[in-house]
Structure formats: C-alpha cells, structure tokens
C-alpha cells in the first residue's frame, strides 16, 4: 500500500481497526491499482477482510469484537 498527496500525509492507527489517513489524494494498493481519495479523512483496512478494499467497511468488528 502506498499513499501519496501534495502535502504531508498523516496516518493514525485505530486499535483493532483501520488506519485513519489525512492528506492523501491517491492510495495505491499492493496490486498497483490506484484508488482516488474523495474524503477529507479515509479509513484504510488493516484486517484484510473488507469487501471494499482498500477502504475499511467495519468488517473488522466481526473479526475482533470489542
């Protein structure tokens, strides 16, 4: 996963959940597919179970109930 943007890109990990990313305009996944960022903040899946990769769709809650 590669994040790119015109300015600083900040990443904050949510425990048991996604990475919150600010400042990216493009997310390039491991297959090289580019995903345009259309929100001020995006959540990137870290559990690999999302059905909307690379975005978190909250499936992690079923994987690791809190």
């Amino acid at each position: 996963m590669r994040l790119s943007g015109p300015d600083d890109v900040s990443v904050r990990s949510c425990p048991g959940g996604p990475d919150l990313v600010r400042g990216a305009t493009l997310v390039v996944d491991d297959d090289g597919v580019q995903h345009e960022v259309t929100r001020p903040v995006v959540a990137i899946c870290r559990c690999d179970r999302s059905s909307r990769m690379p975005w978190c769709d909250s499936t992690h809650k079923a994987v690791r109930p809190r």
Binding site: C14, L20, V41, V42, A43, C56, D57, S58
Partner: peptide
C-alpha cells in the same frame, strides 16, 4: 454509509 461511517466513528469517538 458503510464506508463513510467506518471513518466517522473514529473521528467522533477519538
């Protein structure tokens, strides 16, 4: 909302 609120819950809570 599947996607947006997966972001918003963390924004709101933390």
């Amino acid at each position: 909302h599947v996607e947006a609120d997966s972001v918003h819950e963390h924004l709101a809570a933390h």
